[in-house]
């Protein structure tokens, strides 16, 4: 299958290894990966911070960039969620029904990585080998907006050598929330404190999740604590093979 990677702005700028891991993983599974060069950002930060008018050009750019793609895969529940649940609304609210229609079409072709692997490709064992103690945080948008349920866990359980441990209170938000982390920094870090305590209680060496944004926040907290726990995106865990 020819897969268009929607790498997301955060991964592009700050976490390129997550993008590379997604490419390597999909190629190992025998698929051709293309990266449409016109892509930038889905505009979620603008929408969620109250700047829908400023998000509109980004929605338009995104729709144009992926116009030719058969299937679009993002290593992010949050960005895939924005494409699927916000883009058409933003276009419609700002008087562009044609763009809204195009955005709905893009949305239908867009999948978060674990959805794509489990639902579209029908694989749970991607041939990964990762001999470490790992715990998994289900990110809010993948869980509640996209309803990926336990798909990431199905993928992780099939990894050879992995010691997968359950994260207490896993489904509670880590406190990132985009600009919430800055605007309500005290509340955000209080939520983070409970999340890092939960991670440390598992004794895991690695915390994994499907969103680099949440991992940036939790990882920033774990690093500040000098805890020695690494954060790796789901794609990076699955990329490893013998």
């Amino acid at each position: 299958m020819r897969v268009a990677l929607f790498v997301t702005c955060l991964v592009d700028a700050l976490f390129p290894d997550v993008g590379k891991a997604t490419v390597h993983l999909l190629e190992r599974l025998g698929h051709e990966v293309v990266v449409p060069s016109g892509q930038t950002c889905c505009g979620q930060m603008h929408v969620n911070t109250g700047y829908q008018g400023q998000a509109l050009p980004l929605v338009r750019n995104h729709v144009d960039a992926f116009e030719q793609a058969d299937v679009i895969v993002a290593p992010s529940g949050s960005c895939a969620g924005s494409v699927r649940h916000q883009h058409a609304d933003v276009a419609r609210k700002h008087g562009d029904p044609k763009l809204a229609e195009a955005a709905e079409d893009t949305a239908k072709r867009t999948f978060e990585l674990s959805e794509f692997l489990v639902d579209v490709l029908g694989v749970t064992d991607v041939g990964a080998y990762f001999p470490h103690r790992v715990t998994y945080h289900p990110t809010c948008h993948s869980l509640r907006m996209l309803k990926v349920r336990d798909k990431p866990l199905q993928l992780l359980r099939a990894v050879e050598g992995i010691d997968l441990v359950e994260l207490p209170g896993a489904e509670t938000c880590c406190g990132f929330g985009g600009t919430f982390a800055l605007k309500n920094s005290a509340t955000s870090t209080a939520m983070l404190g409970d999340k890092t305590s939960a991670v440390l209680s598992t004794g895991a060496d690695v915390l994994t999740a499907g969103d680099s944004s949440c991992l940036m926040h939790i990882g920033g907290g774990l690093s500040r604590l000098r805890s020695g726990v690494r954060t790796l995106h789901l794609a990076q865990v699955l990329e490893n093979a013998r």
């Binding site: 790498v7 991964v11 976490f15 290894d17 990266v35 605007k183 920094s185 920033g220 690093s223």
Partner: peptide, 18 residues
């Protein structure tokens, strides 16, 4: 401001994904 009181910033990469 607003971030660094309790969180380290990620180290930007030498090369972007694109």
């Amino acid at each position: 401001p607003g971030w660094s009181a309790a969180r380290d910033l990620p180290l930007p990469p030498k090369q972007t994904f694109r």
